[in-house]
Simulated assay, not measured.
Amino acid sequence: MNRIPLVPLILGLTGLIPFVWGATTLWLPDLQAWGSSHLGPRFVGPYVQLFYGSVILSFMSGVLWGFATKTSGTKAAAGYTLSVIPALWAFFMTGGGPLSAGTNLIYGFAGLLLLDCVFSIWNLTPHWWLRLRVLLTLVVILSLSAGVYL
């Protein structure tokens, strides 16, 4: 009953690639050199994680906005208001250099998971939503942690 449908699971896991790639290039200097020379320096290490992370937080604001449309009145107003927080967080909190931006993205994704819980409690998400979001959030936070704490 709570099984994550295959397509959202595959797309969600595919969306982890830039986070995991960035962490991997931090651990493997030869891979980072290859990636930097073939893809460009913006697409390795923390740089790919930070740029992509801010894009994903903004994307998730849109997803939450869509969930807010499933209700009305004060709950809808609260949903719309909460839904813009991840995008605003990404905009204001990721410009202070790789360490602070990475740390703030970790907090942003943790906060996003809390918002996912709220929308789930309000019965605005699919029944499998939190299972997917917990899985994806754990991988994102672990990957971002490589850029911040290693």
Rank of each mutant, 00 (worst) to 15 (best):
2 N>H: 14
2 N>S: 13
4 I>M: 07
6 L>E: 13
6 L>V: 15
8 P>Q: 09
10 I>M: 01
11 L>F: 12
13 L>D: 02
16 L>N: 10
18 P>H: 14
18 P>Q: 14
21 W>T: 08
22 G>H: 07
22 G>R: 09
22 G>Q: 08
23 A>V: 00
26 L>I: 09
27 W>S: 13
31 L>D: 10
32 Q>T: 11
34 W>C: 00
35 G>Y: 10
36 S>N: 12
38 H>F: 10
46 P>S: 15
46 P>R: 13
48 V>C: 05
50 L>G: 01
51 F>E: 09
55 V>H: 01
57 L>G: 01
57 L>C: 02
58 S>K: 04
59 F>P: 00
60 M>T: 09
62 G>Y: 10
65 W>P: 02
66 G>F: 11
66 G>W: 10
66 G>A: 12
68 A>K: 05
69 T>R: 15
69 T>S: 15
71 T>M: 07
73 G>S: 09
76 A>H: 09
76 A>F: 04
78 A>S: 13
82 L>S: 11
82 L>N: 14
87 A>D: 09
89 W>I: 03
94 T>K: 14
94 T>V: 12
95 G>S: 01
96 G>I: 00
97 G>N: 15
99 L>S: 07
99 L>R: 10
100 S>R: 13
101 A>E: 05
101 A>L: 01
103 T>V: 05
103 T>N: 08
103 T>I: 04
104 N>I: 02
108 G>S: 07
109 F>A: 05
112 L>S: 07
112 L>D: 11
115 L>D: 07
116 D>M: 12
119 F>K: 09
121 I>S: 12
124 L>T: 09
124 L>D: 08
127 H>I: 13
130 L>W: 03
131 R>L: 07
133 R>A: 02
135 L>S: 06
135 L>G: 01
137 T>I: 00
139 V>M: 13
139 V>W: 13
142 L>Y: 01
142 L>N: 01
143 S>L: 04
143 S>A: 15
144 L>S: 00
147 G>T: 01
148 V>R: 01
